[in-house]
C-alpha cells in the first residue's frame, strides 16, 4: 500500500459458490445437498456416540437419556437425519455409477446443440430421487404413525 498498489483480489466464490453461482441444473444442488447431508450425518454420528456412551454410567442414566430423547423435537430431528441419509445414500449410488462410467455416455463429436453427460444421466437421477422419496415417506410413516 505504501507505493499506492494493492494486492490482487482472490475473487474466489467460497461457500457462497456452493449455494448460488447462477442458474445451473438440479445436479449442482444435488452436489450441495450431498455435502450438507454428509456433514449432517457425520454430526449425528458424533452425537450418537456421545449418547450411547451414557450406557456405561448405568441403566438409570441410560433410561433417563432415552426418556429425554423421546421428546417430539428429537424425534423430528432424527427424522431429518433419516431424510439426509436417504438422499445421501441414493445420490451416492448415482455418483458411483457415474464415476464408473455408467449412464453418462461416451465421448463423441461436439455438435451444436451440445448434449452433455449431465443430460444423459438425468433419468438415473430422477429414478434415484423417486426411490429416496419413497424411503422418506415410508420412514415418516414408521417414525410418526406406526411407531406411536
Amino acid at each position: 500500500m505504501a507505493n499506492g498498489t494493492i494486492s490482487k483480489p482472490e475473487n474466489r466464490l467460497g461457500i457462497v459458490g456452493w449455494f448460488y453461482a447462477g442458474s445451473f441444473s438440479f445436479e449442482r444442488y444435488a452436489y450441495i445437498l450431498h455435502r450438507i447431508t454428509g456433514l449432517g450425518i457425520l454430526l449425528y454420528f458424533l452425537l450418537h456416540i456421545f449418547g450411547s456412551s451414557a450406557r456405561i454410567s448405568g441403566q438409570s442414566s441410560w433410561e433417563s437419556l432415552m426418556h429425554f430423547l423421546g421428546k417430539p423435537i428429537f424425534v423430528a430431528g432424527e427424522y431429518l437425519v433419516f431424510i439426509a441419509f436417504c438422499f445421501h445414500a441414493m445420490n451416492g449410488i448415482r455418483l458411483i455409477l457415474g464415476e464408473l462410467g455408467f449412464s453418462i455416455g461416451k465421448p463423441g463429436r461436439p455438435v451444436y446443440p451440445y448434449r452433455i453427460s449431465l443430460n444423459r444421466q438425468r433419468p438415473l437421477l430422477v429414478v434415484f430421487m423417486i426411490i429416496a422419496v419413497i424411503f422418506i415417506l415410508l420412514g415418516g410413516y414408521d417414525f410418526f404413525i406406526a411407531g406411536h
Binding site: 453461482a21 445451473f24 441444473s25 445436479e27 449442482r28 444435488a30 452436489y31 450441495i32 455418483l95 457415474g98 464415476e99 453418462i104 455416455g105 465421448p107 461436439p110 455438435v111 451444436y112 451440445y114 452433455i116 453427460s117 449431465l118
Partner: peptide, 17 residues
C-alpha cells in the same frame, strides 16, 4: 459431478464426462 463445468463450456467439450 455437479456438472457445472459442462454446462458452461462454450465448445461442448463436456469436461465432467
Amino acid at each position: 459431478f455437479a456438472g457445472s463445468c459442462s454446462e458452461v463450456c462454450p465448445k461442448g467439450v463436456d469436461p465432467a464426462l
